[in-house]
Design a protein around this nucleic acid. Sequence first.
DNA 1: AGTACCACCTGACGGC
DNA 2: TGCCGTCAGGTGGTAC
Length: 245
Amino acid sequence: MYARYFERNALGRTIADVRVLDARVVATRKLSTLRGRSFRKVRRHGKHLFADAGGVWLHLHFGMTGDLVAFRDDPPRFARVIFDFDDGAHLAYEDMRLFGVVDLTPSPEEFIRAHNLGPDPLEIRLPEFRRRIAGRRGRIKALLMSQDFLAGLGNLYADEALYRASIHPRRPANRLRDDEVRALFIAIRGVLREAIGFKSRGGDYPARYLVPHRIEGDRCPRCGGTIRRTIVAGRTTYFCGRHQR
DNA sequence: AGTACCACCTGACGGC
DNA sequence: TGCCGTCAGGTGGTAC
């Protein structure tokens, strides 16, 4: 979703200036080397966005409150970095809680290696998913959130995928049946692809999703069960007490 | 290998 | 009105 937005609002334009409004999200002092360059292509890997600026790549991570906002006149309230283009357009990287990162990296591959990121779920097939999950004894939700296992799922989407696959978040990964592993893989890909789709269109989560029902005691839109709230892997976790086993 | 816990940060919200 | 504690979330670190 950020990748598409970046493509629409930054690709092909010449960067006139990069303004750092809050250095706490910027992990390099060299963003100014982007001046005069232009972004040629965009790549996403998990939660990371990379933009090719010719010999160097811009890397963006959005933490939890990070976002991109194109604007003409007034920057958004929590703008931390602003890219000024020579055609008068501006793109703000905003991040209220400052957990995100704006960075430069030699290449996406280099970054992925350095940070030991697992594959993007949309770029692998079921056999590789099976191989990676085999022998892992931890709780399935903890595994789904581990970026070195798979890159791209956070707390909400891990819950969402497990909900869709009818799997209890505390199940040990190596005790999932073959059909459950398959269902989970399909659920992960479905959730990511759909989320990219409707978030790109500025939409919200459909009512059939678990996300709008992250309320203790709420009704499961799928089976009418009761939504439970608990802590798994240190994170607030919601699941349906009836259909997730 | 897996887990627990902390820090980072700020706005929203409930309690008093 | 306003202060205070708590919570939310991604990541990266430490300790067990």
